[in-house]
Structures are given as C-alpha cells and as structure tokens.
C-alpha cells in the first residue's frame, strides 16, 4: 500500500535550516493537507518526498522501504504551474505516461497499442471533463483546465503517493470547488496517499483526512535562519468526505472556462453535497473518537485566532535579504504567489 514514515527529518541549505525534527507516520490512503506560512518549507517537504532533493538528515520510508532517491512513477505530482507539457496536445499529455511505460526505446506507441492507450486516456479525460478538448494544446486552455489536465496526466500512472503543491493556488474559488472533486474521486477509488500543500484552510479542512501545519517553534532574533519549521499542528479528521459534484456542475465549470474570461459559474455551490453516495473512504469512517471529533470550523477559528500569528515568524522569502538592525519589519510576510482572495488567512501579520 502506501504508508509513509518520516523519521527525524532535517533539511538545511548551507546555514539556513528550513525543516527540523519532522516525525510523521502517514497512514496508507490518508489525504493530508499541509498548511503553513509562506517560506516555511512546505514545498521543501514535498520535494523531499518526491525525491527531487535528498534530506540533510533523516529518512522517509514508503511501506518500510527507503524512498528511491530520485523521482519515479510511484510518486505523482501536480505543481501549481508548468504542470503539463506545452508541446503535447491534451491527449498527448495524458497518454505520455503510458507511452513511456510501454515503449522504452521510442517512448511512443503506434497502431493498436496506441489506440488502447487512447481509450484508457479518454477514460481519465472524461473524468476531468476534458475529453472534448483533447486535440488542443495547453496554451489554449484556461488555468483550471490545465490543472485538471495535469491531474489526469498524473493519475493515469496510478501513483502510490500523490503530491499536490498548491495545485489550485492560481484558480478562482468557484473553479477550485469543482476541481476538488476530481482529486477526491480517484483518491477514493484508487489506493493512494495524498499530500496536498495549500494556503487555503477551508480547502485543507474540506479535502483532508488530516491537517498538518508547519511552523517554527524556536526563534533566534539575531540569527533567524538557525532554526527550521516543524509540524506544530496535527489533526486527524473523522468526518465523511466531500463527494464528487454532480456532472452537471462540472460541465458548468467547463463551459465557463471555455468561453473566454474565467469566472465561477453563478450557481456553483460553495460546498459540495454528497449527491453521489460513493462509499466513504475507510480512513474517514472511523468511529467518532472524543479526541478527534472536532467541528472543522471550530478548529479553524481556534487555530486562526490562536497565539502569535505563524506568518510572522516563518517568512523565509522575506527574510532572505538580511535586515539591518532597527529596520522596520516588513509589513507583509506573504510570498508573492499568495492569491488575493486568500490574504490574511493566518490572521494579522503586521
């Protein structure tokens, strides 16, 4: 299956410690949402799991075996940008994974083998609502369509671990809502563990079976780079999953993305009702346990309101330029990619 164990993980770049003392046991088939201030190392953590970088210290085990030290087909990824190949059509992007697997020498399929691959790919394209656009190039797709394409491209490989780094960060809320289902459905159908970085706590709680927050626990005012972030907040949720939206809604989103300016469909519900009644994921059917039976909104409010705002301490992107002593604190500690509707999620920051 796909149980992840993270043991005493540290990651530093030169003198700069980014992550420290990360210990996690992530159950097979969990959906882990990872939140935290900009620059506190969420993407770094994903890169380590992905095998894009080696940890400075510590190990990550997948079902008890050390992770291969380079990216491979067992771990799929959807990035925020550049997630699809611009030189391939929508269909080409999705069958690429199959072509690579089945044709080691040319990386290309022909004839009947290609037709079989196309049939498989179209199944995934239909699932993400892009079957009608399969001959188009990504350049001609909206941001939401590109992300859906990337999801299909990744899922066709049936990865054991799916890594999502702010996959919906650049999308408007309406488009996001309808894409959420596209991640949840395959996750409930195919056994895989999902790690998703997001700046949107609503999203984190809505999709995740477990929510992690990365933050620094130790601070050194003279030498802010001395300590890294670790997991400061870890909550396992037990509510039942949001189920995929009815297809009609998907189509509405498609229509809105295809016809020029992107805007959420007027009637897109903000929360997706469980119309489909798919079997709930086992991890989400655990009997209610007093320690974890928390109403998500209550948790969110508690977290957002609690303590010193994490965004203050952890803004690596801002801190990279050394500040002169006595210089005013930067007023905004958010990274440049924080979408406008999402500012100030972590409370005050000045």
């Amino acid at each position: 299956m796909s149980h992840l164990s993270v043991r005493r993980l540290w990651q530093s770049y030169g003198d700069k410690v980014v992550l420290e003392r990360i210990n996690l046991e992530i159950e097979s088939r969990s959906f882990v949402s990872i939140a935290g201030a900009s620059g506190c190392g969420k993407s770094t953590f994903l890169r380590l799991v992905l095998g894009q970088e080696r940890p400075t210290r510590g190990t990550i085990l997948l079902d008890g075996d050390p992770l291969p030290p380079e990216p491979g087909p067992d771990r799929g990824v959807v990035f925020q940008r550049y997630s699809v190949f611009p030189h391939l059509t929508v269909l080409g992007n999705v069958i690429l994974g199959l072509e690579i697997e089945r044709s080691p020498l040319l990386g290309r399929l022909f004839g009947a083998a290609r037709r079989r691959a196309i049939d498989e790919a179209r199944h995934y394209l239909e699932a993400v609502g892009l079957d009608g656009d399969r001959e188009r190039y990504p350049d001609a797709l909206s941001g939401g369509m590109q992300q859906r394409l990337s999801i299909a491209q990744t899922l066709i490989k049936k990865p054991r671990v799916l890594l999502l780094d702010e996959p919906f960060g650049a999308l408007d809320p309406g488009t996001r809502a309808s894409i959420h289902a596209l991640v949840l459905r395959p996750w409930s159908e195919h056994p895989m563990t999902v790690l998703m970085v997001t700046h949107d706590l609503t999203e984190a709680f809505k999709l995740g079976t477990r929510v992690l927050v990365f933050d620094k626990t130790r601070h050194d005012e003279q030498e802010p780079e001395r300590y890294g972030a670790t997991v400061t907040y870890d909550l396992t949720l037990n509510r039942s999953p949001s189920t995929p939206p009815p297809p009609a809604e998907l189509q509405a989103e498609q229509a809105s993305t295809r016809s020029g300016p992107r805007c959420p469909p007027a009637d897109a519900p903000r929360t997706l009702g469980g119309a489909h009644g798919e079997p709930a994921h086992p991890a989400r059917r655990r009997p209610t346990d007093a320690s974890t039976a928390v109403e998500p909104r209550a948790v969110r409010d508690q977290f957002v309101g609690a303590g010193p705002a994490p965004a203050r301490r952890c803004a690596g992107h801002v801190r990279r330029r050394p500040r002169r002593a006595g210089a005013p604190r930067p007023t905004s500690t958010h990274g440049p990619r924080r979408p406008p509707w999402n500012r100030g999620r972590y409370g005050t920051n000045s």
């Binding site: 990216p71 491979g72 087909p73 990824v77 550049y82 391939l88 697997e101 990386g107 990865p159």
Partner: peptide, 26 residues
C-alpha cells in the same frame, strides 16, 4: 522549467525518454 523535468520522471521516463519526448520536441 524544473517542474517539467520532475514531471517527466514521475511519469516513469528514463533519461533517453526524457530526451526523446520532452527535450527534443521543445
């Protein structure tokens, strides 16, 4: 973009396949 190199590898591509399917055409 770095993302493409990673993506190709997560799709299972060998160095040769990366050259053939990702780098050369672009």
């Amino acid at each position: 973009p770095e993302e493409q190199w990673i993506k190709a590898q997560t799709l299972g591509a060998s160095s040769w396949q990366v050259a053939l399917r990702m780098v050369l055409p672009q």
